[in-house]
Nucleic acid binder design. Structure first.
Lengths: 145, 145
DNA sequence: TTTTTATATTTGCATGTACAAACAATTTAT
DNA sequence: ATAAATTGTTTGTACATGCAAATATAAAAA
């Protein structure tokens, strides 16, 4: 444990625990930054995804966002109801399109995303943030099988 | 990006996104392992915390588990209702005690926790897991202020 | 062509978590 | 000693998320 910060908890050596702790902290921070858009973080990511690829299907969204399909359906439903998205059903597939309202918000969302990035890199450092993010993402992929 | 695994998503450079992805994967894995105890992961951690320090107060639990106090209250309530915990109110404080049922389960919980550890270290490697966990925990603390 | 299998999406249901506000008790200031 | 501020706990409410089952469609096999 040389050079290591003191642990406040006996759980800090557990990846499950640490990962959840970080997730909660980051989600809170993200929600604060995305508040400028009037959206919470998940919805902001959803709109970005659809804005970047109009007509994208829920399946693909769920892969990009690493969420289950049912969760994606729920997110889409809500944004459709709020007038940000539209669904077009064709066969067993569904295509999701942004409305003008969503496209109009795109710039603001990306700004908020950048603010979020700046905020945590200011605390953790740019290089360290990058490395940490890469390591975490790599682990998530590996553990996801 | 030398030596880096291909990113499946434009979001994989975002710490918020990666942290959440890992959190979901790990929570799923933890729930699978703790299923042997009949508990989901949060409750297992709660019981361990109380078993290790009978009479511990919700405040302290919330610090150890890095959850809000209201969340801890809810978790305790449920375990009390299921006969694993008991609350003793004294003034504005509450002391939480394990029942025999909880103490009896302690060993099994710790075994499940060990299984979880073995499972992810088998995939990520022991050293890498340790480093990743430390890094994540350190970041969570820093970002938490 | 009919049957079987696989795939995409959506529901029903359950649950963990947080925020903000309400309480309740203790400490500090006046 | 009374008032004000702080602290610990609990509620009311909202919501993101997942699993399993139900649909519906498309593809493959017979």
């Amino acid at each position: 444990m040389i050079g290591m910060k003191e642990c406040n908890s006996k759980y800090c050596n557990c990846l499950y625990y640490s990962a959840n702790a970080l997730s909660r902290v980051m989600t809170k921070m993200a929600d604060e930054e995305f508040a400028a858009t009037g959206l919470s973080s998940s919805y902001a990511f959803l709109l970005m995804t659809v804005n970047d690829k109009p007509g994208v299907q829920p399946k693909e969204i769920s892969e990009k966002m690493m969420l289950t399909q049912s969760t994606v359906t729920r997110l889409i439903e809500k944004m459709e109801h709020k007038g940000f998205l539209e669904r077009k059903h064709s066969g067993r597939n569904t295509e999701v399109y942004p409305t003008a309202k969503s496209k109009k918000l795109d710039k603001k969302i990306k700004q908020a995303w950048m603010s979020l990035y700046k905020r945590y890199t200011a605390i953790l450092g740019k290089e360290k943030s990058k490395k940490l993010t890469d390591d975490i993402y790599g682990a998530a992929i590996k553990l996801h099988e």
